[in-house]
Design a binder for these strands. Structure first.
Lengths: 206, 206
DNA sequence: ATGATAGGGTACGGCACAGTACCATAGATG
DNA sequence: CATCTATGGTACTGTGCCGTACCCTATCAT
């Protein structure tokens, strides 16, 4: 079965629908988005959509997973330590913010937040794959620096959370609420301050 | 005109509807909430609701304003400086978190975030009256401490943002996404760490 | 060529909801 | 007692949308 169809494999077909779903859910959120709109953009018919996805909720879950992928890939698989503590932290913070403040990320954040009471597992997944993954990555790096004697941190995970909290500062919340997006200067300031403070607190050399 | 009606003044009537609206919007968010549900809880009829509020959106705006009031009053009008820098910061962080992590606050945060692309002025208002107000209050206090020679901070507003960012850490985001609410221990840890770091960075005595 | 199958197009059932219209009633006014 | 006004109750209109059913075409196997 699964004989090849003309315009593309089943996988490609599914991806087209998924991409359209991403656009629509980003634009309208979950409740206000309509499956018909997805069909309109993807081409084809509802029948096909419901062939690949159980229902609207299932499509939304797939969309969220897809966006998490898109979001996290530029952050790289692992933190390397070629450039020293300061630059590593600074670099990580920069990537983190640039991802978090993209239009896509903000839009999907809004959509997931809106539905996280109705679909709790969705909010959980989004956190784990997005901000939570970043925390774990940094925490792992900090533990390594602990072992190397560069840092002295008791609870590396809490420290990582706090670092990202400092980096985010108000920037993310303000962007989420639609206040004007921060400029490069704001980002730079927030990151460099966070790094300074973090190092002053934890670096054994200081 | 506006002759007295039986069960209460017009103001009271409006307040009852508003209170019902708060409950319903908190429970369902904006889009999924229905005006009929508000009517059911407030008693009376749709006609009366639409007498006091232009439409669903207007009711929602009033609800958000009402909740902002409810939220911010326990934070008190002004920061006093009776207890020294450490205790003042610690106290402020505690109040801040306890407000931010209330069920009500989380629910209305979700609802406002969800609609902030459709109703940008709403998101803006919510931020200004909520987290933004806290930032301004702290910033003012920090400036005062600057003048008194206790602190040495160039940009007090940024410092205030960063302080709250540290205090929030991941706690708020995780709560928003419906991961389990942080325990008292988590709050204490986040706050005390934030205060320590902040003072170590900015206090002239250190 | 003939049959089978997947998928595009469309329409529909069922439901929910925003906002309005209408009627009956309870109190206020004279 | 008579009239008027405001409001509760309810039905209605118009709209939108999820999920399914049906028809028809285009491709593939034999």
């Amino acid at each position: 079965m699964a004989s090849n169809v003309k315009p593309g494999t089943e996988q490609e077909r599914r991806d087209v629908i998924l991409a359209a779903g991403i656009d629509v859910f980003i634009e309208h959120g979950y409740t206000s988005a309509s499956v018909d709109e997805v069909v309109r953009r993807a081409g084809g018919s509802k029948r096909t959509v419901y062939k690949y996805f159980d229902n609207k909720k299932g499509l939304f879950a797939a969309v969220v997973a897809g966006i998490c992928d898109q979001m996290m890939t530029p952050l790289g698989p692992e933190i390397t330590d070629e450039k020293g503590l300061y630059d590593t932290l600074e670099n990580l913070g920069r990537h983190y913010l640039s991802i978090l403040l993209q239009d896509h990320s903000l839009a999907i954040y809004r959509a997931v937040v809106a539905e996280s009471s109705r679909f709790p597992e969705l909010g959980k997944a989004f956190y784990e794959f997005g901000p939570g993954a970043a925390v774990l990555r940094l925490s792992k790096y900090l533990s390594l620096q602990n072992d190397l004697g560069v840092l002295k941190i008791e609870d590396t995970e809490s420290a990582a959370r706090q670092y990202f909290g400092m980096v985010r500062s108000d920037l993310h919340m303000r962007a989420v609420f639609g206040l004007q997006l921060p400029g490069q200067k704001d980002l730079d300031q927030s990151i460099s301050r966070a790094v300074d403070i973090f190092i002053k607190e934890y670096d054994l050399d200081q």
